[in-house]
Amino acid sequence: MDLAWPVIAWALWVAALAAAFKVSSRERPREASRYDAPVPVVELLRGMRTQEVFHAALFDLAGRGWVTVEGDRLTLAPPRREPLLPYERWVLDRVAARLRGRPQAPVMALTPEGTDLDGEFVPLVRQTAIDLGLARRRWPNMIVPLLLAAALVVPWYVTIATAGLSWPGMIATMVSFVAGVSLLMAGRGFLLTGTGREITGPDREPANPRQEWIYTGSGWHGVEIEPPGSPAPGSERQEVAGHIVKRWSVAEVDTDAMSSGRSYYVALHDGSSEKARSYVVKETLYHDVLPGDFVRLLVKPRTGKVVRLLAHERHW
């Protein structure tokens, strides 16, 4: 079985794919945006979760007087004459629909379903990023991905004609199917521009990192939080469980080491105590949980540091 021709066919297709991606990755000259990037757009470009981008939009609207957020309760403010971006109008419309005439409601109850956020909200935020020059489409239209997907027929046919239904033919069939579907599902693509990469770089912190909502559904009154490392009975490590009622981050500077960093915290309420207890967490865990989530943590009581996330449930 001579596989020379299949190898050549696949090599040519891979070369065409690489060339297309290389050409599409070139920056296209464009006039710089005259507007500051909205926080929700920056959060999306930084890879934050959809729910967090939605809540960033709520806080952004609250800062401009469109809504009022007190604790974990949101109230719609009287309409203003200020123009809104399409995704902001979408957020206000969904919030108004979920309020159903009530004067206020918990922020959690006003958060749309994930499918709605991914299917309607995120495309609007992405389009805003494109309009501001922070991102662009990889392909100007669908012709290139369609041609690349259609061109997969050539190496697939050459492989099948040479090897039949043996393992090379089966691999070629699987690769052709996965690659073709991936090209079509990705659509026109979405890439950050130079400006977009600059404002979302690792050295850039999100705006207002302490601006977080709280959760009072566990019975916590939103007032007292014990600091990390509070005296607590138990061994060197122990399990704690409860609802995340608040989370926040604090910028810290080490003058001796001439370095700076950021510490991340979550407050946990067990559902019966008067106070919530705070813990130090890693950045990854901080971004994985939201107020209202029920978690079970393995912690070091003396230092208040979380060792491991043992369980995580979200009911909204």
Rank of each mutant, 00 (worst) to 15 (best):
G180L: 09
Q104S: 15
P86Y: 15
H243I: 00
L183D: 01
Y87H: 15
Y264K: 06
V23W: 09
A135G: 11
D36P: 01
L297S: 13
D36S: 10
D36M: 08
E82D: 08
T284E: 15
S230R: 04
Y157H: 02
R210L: 04
L146H: 10
V299E: 02
G234W: 00
S218C: 13
G304E: 06
V223P: 00
E239Q: 15
R73C: 03
T195L: 07
T50M: 00
L184N: 07
M48Q: 10
R30L: 05
I8R: 15
D118E: 15
T50N: 03
D72A: 05
A161K: 11
W167I: 06
A109F: 12
A19N: 00
Y264V: 05
W66H: 09
V245M: 10
Q127L: 12
V245S: 01
A276N: 04
T195I: 00
R94L: 13
S25A: 15
K22W: 08
E313Q: 10
V53N: 07
V181W: 06
G201E: 13
W139E: 11
E120W: 12
D288P: 03
G194F: 01
S182T: 14
K282M: 04
V7M: 14
V14F: 12
R277A: 14
A267D: 06
K275V: 11
M185S: 14
A96T: 13
L12A: 14
A232F: 00
I143Q: 02
L134N: 07
K246T: 02
L92D: 08
L152C: 11
Y87K: 07
P231M: 03
L92P: 04
V144C: 11
S249Y: 08
P112M: 01
E236M: 01
A18N: 00
R30K: 05
S263F: 02
P38C: 12
E226K: 07
A9M: 12
H55P: 00
V69P: 01
A9K: 04
P29I: 09
S176G: 15
W248M: 09
H312W: 14
G101P: 02
G234I: 05
P103E: 09
G271S: 10
S230L: 06
T200R: 08
N141P: 08
D118K: 11
P168D: 06
D293N: 10
R188W: 09
